[in-house]
Amino acid sequence: MKFLLSSEQQDFATSLDRLLSGLDLRGAIQSWAAGEHGPGLKVWRSLSELGVTALSVPEEYGGLGASAVDLVVAFERLGYHAVPGPWVDTVAVLPALLDDEVLEGIATGETLASIAAPPEVPYALDADIADLRVFVAPNALHVFTPGTQLRSVDAARRLFRTQPGDQIGTARDFDRAFDFGALTTAAQLLGAAQWLLDTSVAYATQRRQYGREIGRYQAIKHLLADVATKLELARPLVHGAAVAEHSPTRARDVSAAKAAATDAAYLAARIGLQVHGAIGYTAEHPLGLRLTKVRALVGAWGTSHFHRTRLLKELA
């Protein structure tokens, strides 16, 4: 089977790239990490105007009722540009958890959500800015109060302990919601890995050493080719898992996608740092934003161990 994005999906990705390339995302990321959400919320509103927040919301609540493939297209671009905020919780997970009028606020971009679902999602992302905080317990959904803020390797991922409160209902389909969280996280990892590869290739064609560009040395070419190969192997798994959103093999496919995207992004981060050398360690260089983002997303919505174990069980 040959899978290709539709022309509408390609145009959507191009529109997202064009919008995000014109915004001061680095400033928004730094402000978000410092607890100043104004610039990041401006980015949120801009993306909501393009329909990103409405993707998974049913049409009856003002959403687009889009497919998982559309979600993956959007989240690859969010990962490529390292957009801060609880995008997975709000756009991908919550619409699968709830069937409620609160989704109208999600669709318009007015409501931000933060979700904790132990043991795989033990801490709540951006709970201090969230309008809706949901704690997923066995067979029940509760509101929660943010507790102690924790330190993340990615400063823009503000994690909080949770104090569950009143029950607000039952989860509509938690397994599906969890898989959407893992799938969109995998898409973010793909986007981040692609940015790391693109940036490393560009740097290798400019940086000169011993009288020639370092990208002309065979050792550098092989390193970058390894990253490109990993990406090309991971992307079909992520897109394939999105296509199989209603398939009985969804859990297996999502875990395979998350594990492959994790491997590709981790390799892209490691090779990107090798290619850039010492400058990649500096806080001033944008490479650092992707390195820490990748390291944080590797464990988000299921660690590699969790997904490889689940994949093995599904195959067995």
Rank of each mutant, 00 (worst) to 15 (best):
A242G: 07
A242D: 03
A260D: 09
D253R: 15
V243S: 02
L233D: 13
A242K: 02
R216E: 10
A261N: 07
R235V: 05
Y217K: 09
Y217W: 14
Y217R: 13
A244P: 02
K221D: 06
P248H: 10
S247G: 07
H239S: 01
A257C: 09
K258F: 08
L233P: 04
I220N: 03
A225S: 13
A259I: 10
H222V: 15
R250A: 02
A260S: 15
L233S: 13
V227F: 09
H239D: 00
A219I: 12
L231T: 11
K230V: 02
R216P: 02
T262I: 05
E245R: 02
E232L: 05
Q218S: 12
A264N: 11
A251I: 01
R212T: 12
L231E: 13
A265I: 08
G215R: 01
K230T: 06
L233V: 08
R212V: 11
V254I: 06
K221G: 14
I214V: 14
S255M: 11
A234I: 08
H222T: 14
L231M: 13
G215I: 01
A241W: 05
H239Y: 08
D253G: 07
G240P: 07
R235A: 07
A261G: 05
S255A: 15
L224K: 12
T262E: 05
I214S: 03
A260K: 06
A244L: 09
Y217L: 13
A228F: 06
A251C: 00
A225Y: 12
R212N: 04
A228D: 15
S247D: 14
R235K: 12
R250S: 02
L237P: 02
A256M: 15
L231F: 13
K258T: 08
A225Q: 15
H239N: 02
R252E: 14
L233C: 07
K230C: 10
V238G: 04
T229H: 14
A260F: 09
A244W: 00
A251V: 03
T249C: 06
L224W: 09
R235I: 02
Y266N: 00
D263V: 13
L233F: 09
A259W: 06
A259K: 08
Y266A: 00
L224D: 10
A219K: 04
V254N: 05
S255R: 08
T249A: 15
A264G: 11
T229E: 15
L233R: 14
H239G: 00
V238W: 02
A225M: 13
K221H: 09
G240A: 04
S247T: 09
V254L: 07
K230R: 15
I214E: 07
R216T: 12
A241N: 05
Y217M: 12
A234G: 08
A242V: 05
D253P: 03
A228S: 15
D226Y: 06
V254P: 08
Q218L: 11
R252S: 11
S255Y: 03
V243F: 01
K258D: 04
H246T: 04
S255L: 12
H246R: 04
E213R: 07
A259P: 12
A256S: 15
S255D: 10
K221Q: 15
E245K: 00
I220W: 03
T262V: 08
E213A: 14
I214D: 01
A251G: 02
